[in-house]
Design a protein around this nucleic acid. Structure first.
Lengths: 356, 356
DNA sequence: GCAGATTCTTGACACGTTTCAGTCTGGTGG
DNA sequence: CCACCAGACTGAAACGTGTCAAGAATCTGC
């Protein structure tokens, strides 16, 4: 039904080859002809058929981005970074949401492969998925996002979560806290495990008590409230004076429930979160949090994909690890002087690359 | 480079037609042959070429969803609803982000049209964009999302923002407030204008004072803080006892700054937001807000697109308007019983009330 | 064992585009 | 006047798939 290049050609009284040239290499066709063709295009409302172009070219002009949850600010920021790079390469981003379902992940990957995308950026539900493995085997460039690659046959970009956990707890120790709790779970998530490990690291060299671990079922607000209720129920002598939460949603839930229980943040209990989501700074007591270079993560992942696409088989896979950064706000202010706000300029994120 | 249907055919010792049948109508091919072909497919790692299929079929199996901001929870929920319906129709959703830039919108729409998507769901940057008009003229089904259609040549789904504004302010009036402020802007956004109009409606039949309008530059946290600073600076006698904000981000900013200024929510000033984003319930003082049926909005928009695709030219455009719903929480609690916080200490930041 | 029915397979064409080897035209230098 | 050239345009092939009419093989009933 819609007009094709052929209709344009006959309307303008030229051959299809000439129309194609007007579209792709306008400089090789005489100005008069060019105008005639362009007029016909406008008159007929001609729109190029991308499928035919791709079929002919053998590959598409798009990349796939597969994330666990589009509603998560972490991933929307990553997506934004990816988009910037894709834009610069005249490439479309096909954003897919798995909702942590392996089945949806599989279906999306199949679709992307059928679309012949140039490459796939993915935060996999399960890092050792055979579906991804098979796709790589068929020659599809893949970059792991926010996961460190277990295998050597792909690139990856990630943030050092162990370091992040260490930064958070070091900060609390420096502020004088000796009884510190870790709130997070489930421990099957690599992030939770790593941040917890970092917290232990930080305590190892100090004179603080052992880390009190409050395991949660998920990384959500309600889980945070539940954990805070448990903490508030402890006798004052055994109650921690500071809490490090595995993400900001937990921390917000913790703060809410602590306040409801009559405990003041940071005066009675200091709180540190992780992710530095937009609402962390906007909480009634602005939240100290560990910030990850999210857009940079996305940009780097996209850069790696385009690098691999260009270099082809000569490509050597790289594993980029970024360093997170602690953003200190009121929720961990000194217990003596509750109002010391340092939201100052931040150093550029540092990256260490490991080639394989 | 990748294996095609032809390679599979020769590997399995059959014709291409048979391979195609195995893929699309397995029941018409003999079990033995079918297995032989499937084995060849597995062995060669054959993946269908979606471009070729689309070219042949004349249309794709995907729809476009164009939103103003993927990071906005409103749109991620809408997208989730769209996805559900698309899933049921074996259709992909191509999610595009305009960031409110007309230029990016134009580029995305061109790309979607070239991809021959079945239809486009869009919250346009500018409701009367000629680009969209032209696209509709070429026969592309379009559904306006969160906008009421000015013209009759397309479907639309929206939420009644005037009603939402009325609900919010009616609630405040019923709670006994007589001096009420509206915080929002810019007024060029239809949402802001409609919610403001609803607020005026609600006041019209009451004995309350005129609405105090605090116009903001945007619908963000910092704008909310700024507005709250202006409000807090008013002499107590002229200061509103309740604030209705055009969205939740503004409301969170307002609450934060009011608290910082020593005014308590809801005891000194009640606050009502709009959107009921996840963090509205999670604020330290849970926010009363107007909830929109976001997923339903997305599902309905997708339903309309598929309806139009099926019915073709026999389709009659429809305009669906949903009703929002007020979710009452603590931020607008009655002024007599501020908070059942038995003997708990008061928040540090609210130690002194500003009197005049 | 045969006509006819049924089941299975084949092969060519079409989809809309890009590419490329040619053809045609008019002009230039010898 | 001829040979040559550059510039402008043409026409057909190819990309990988789905469809469909027609052919081949097998089965059914007698």
């Amino acid at each position: 039904m819609p007009a094709g290049i052929k209709d344009v050609a006959s309307a303008a009284g030229v051959s299809v080859g000439t129309v194609s040239n007007v579209l792709n290499r306008p400089e090789v066709v005489a100005p008069a002809t060019r105008e005639r063709v362009q007029a016909a295009i406008g008159r007929l409302g001609f729109v190029r058929n991308e499928s035919a172009r791709q079929l002919r070219a053998g590959r598409s002009r798009s990349i796939g981005l597969v994330v666990l949850d589009v509603a998560n600010p972490f991933f929307t920021d990553v997506a934004h970074g990816v988009e910037q790079v894709a834009d610069g390469n005249a490439t479309m981003v096909v954003l897919c949401n798995t909702g942590e379902s392996p089945d949806r992940e599989r279906r999306h990957l199949e679709m992307l492969e059928q679309l012949r995308v140039l490459g796939v950026l993915i935060t996999p539900v399960d890092a050792k998925s055979p579906v991804i493995e098979a796709m790589i085997g068929r020659g599809m460039p893949v970059v792991l996002v926010d996961r460190r690659s277990v295998r050597r046959n792909r690139c990856s970009v990630a943030v050092d979560d162990v370091l992040g956990g260490r930064l958070a707890v070091q900060h609390l120790v420096e502020r004088g806290h000796r009884r510190i709790a870790f709130v997070g779970g489930p421990f099957s998530l690599p992030q939770v495990g790593d941040r917890h490990a970092g917290a232990l690291d930080a305590l190892a060299g100090s004179d603080a008590e052992d880390l009190l671990v409050v395991e949660t079922a998920s990384l959500t607000l309600p889980s945070g409230r539940q954990a805070a209720a448990d903490i508030a129920a402890l006798p004052a002598g055994r109650r921690p004076t500071a809490v490090f939460c595995a993400n900001d949603l937990l921390a917000l839930g913790v703060m809410q429930e602590l306040t409801r229980s009559g405990l003041r943040v940071p005066r009675d209990i200091a709180v540190v979160g992780y992710d530095d989501i937009e609402y962390a700074a906007g909480a009634v007591v602005p939240l100290t949090s560990v910030r990850q270079p999210r857009e940079l993560l996305g940009r780097t992942a996209a850069d790696l994909i385009f690098e691999e696409v260009e270099q082809g088989s000569g490509h050597r896979h790289r594993h980029v690890v970024f360093e997170p950064e602690l953003v200190v706000r009121e929720s961990s202010a000194l217990r003596r002087r509750p109002r010391a706000r340092s939201d100052g300029p931040r150093p550029a994120a540092a990256a260490t690359a490991v080639a394989s």
